[in-house]
Design a protein around this nucleic acid. Structure first.
Lengths: 252, 252
DNA sequence: CGCGGAATTGAAAATACTCAAAATTAGTGG
DNA sequence: CCACTAATTTTGAGTATTTTCAATTCCGCG
């Protein structure tokens, strides 16, 4: 406890025995598919691992772009602020995902990033990464895949925001989290929401009250159990069908 | 007239004297910043230029991914189909923009693309492009910028769909088109909509009736003149302010 | 125990949708 | 070039979904 207060909220963990090779995310993250030799070359350029405390921000909009960040541990939200000062959350990120790719085009970050819980990231200096691209073609290929995946993810979000009704959006949100946890070896039916109802609503283009009503409705239908932020999906198939638009949802 | 009927709707224009060097889009498109030598190397890998007739599709969802496409001339829309069969337009593309980047991660196209008018694209075999990345670092850098720009564009669309009201969305849409034409050297206040009201509505997450009412409203306010698809922005500053959320819009 | 943030619930209001009909425009063939 | 048909757009009226506003409740934490 007292130790926690002695270390600053954002810490250099250089001293920690951390590396891509023994990171559990290396089959999902940037080093995917690299041999041990190439992986350690990537390791060498990773400046430092940083801890970000819950609520702290990793970078802010308009900050100069120098690094990409790979999540080692924890969860983040990325959000934009419009000129009127309102925020729009553009995504929730979890371990193995890469943040900052939207900054490449303008050399400035295009959104804010905040940690949803105490988290750890690997700082990847983009200039040095570019140097590696010439030496490790596999790294370049996978980097392109990750950028492409980011485009795909956002297109799916557009589909969600553009033509789904509230209950579909929320179902799609749950199903999406579920499958991402499954890929990471966690339960696809039992997990904890790391974000507030307000964040969920913001992301889905709905109000916090709407989210609350949807939670109650799905609970009442017996499609999920909810205890605070602890979720258990009881009828994942129905939720998937609802998200896909192939089934509708009774009003109560 | 009769000639137009003799050539198939999708034609190989290999014979045409087309190249990046003398393409008016080369400062916006993939070859941006390349010297003449590198630009002609890029030219060499571009298999062919294709004509796509209005309404025809360039590729469809789940088609195997082999090529990226740069627009030489014309306009396109990209759209996704959800399992229920409804479409969501994810973007409108114009000359100098690159399509297909969302397919890199899965080796299959993630959306459909249709021409909004008779158009021409350059077919860029991705495998050969990857080979060039190792030889022309500038090309790789600009490719990353273009992918990053695509991510940014979609984040902006999320902001639009997630927390703007109808009139803001439509204003933002007009302002966006306006600035893209400006970059291309066209008038930022006078242009033709290449897409139907229905397409606009679909893209903005609104119905065609809502779009029609917004057109009438902005016309009545004297903020724009509209004749069919011909647009003239009279009060671009107000439209920008409305899109930014710093000004509101009277009801009539 | 009490404070404060977060979440829930209810009732009223607003925005955007649906349905229907009319008007306009584009496309086709004579 | 004109006439006819099909498609698109506009407009109106009523409806529905989601928001807004307000009041409680729940929960973590000092």
């Amino acid at each position: 406890m007292s130790e926690l207060h002695l270390i600053p909220r954002t810490t250099d963990l250089q001293a920690m025995k951390t590396s891509c090779v023994n990171c559990s995310m290396h089959q999902l993250c940037l080093p995917m598919g690299l041999n041990d030799n190439d992986m350690s070359r990537l390791d060498e350029i990773i400046g430092r691992r940083r801890r970000i405390a819950r609520g702290e921000s990793l970078y802010r909009m308009d900050d100069p772009f120098r690094n990409l960040y790979a999540i080692r541990l924890g969860h983040f939200k990325t959000y934009q602020l419009n000129p009127g000062g309102e925020q729009q959350i553009t995504g929730f990120q979890m371990a193995g995902e890469l943040m900052g790719m939207d900054a490449i085009s303008t050399d400035r970050h295009h959104c804010d990033v905040a940690a949803l819980e105490d988290s750890e990231v690997c700082e990847i200096p983009f200039q040095r990464l570019e140097e590696l691209f010439g030496v490790i073609p596999m790294l370049l290929r996978h980097f392109h895949r990750m950028m492409s995946q980011e485009i795909t993810r956002e297109q799916n979000a557009m589909l969600l925001l553009g033509n789904m009704r509230a209950e579909q959006r929320f179902a799609a949100f749950l199903v999406n989290l579920s499958s991402r946890y499954a890929v990471r070896g966690y339960s696809s039916t039992s997990f904890q929401l790391r974000m507030s109802r307000e964040d969920i609503g913001n992301y889905l283009g709905l109000t916090i009250e709407s989210i609350s009503r949807l939670v109650s409705r799905f609970k009442k239908l017996g499609w999920m159990q909810v205890d605070k932020r602890e979720i258990r999906l009881i009828e994942p198939a129905r939720l998937k069908a609802l998200a896909a638009g192939t089934e509708t949802c009774p009003l109560d």
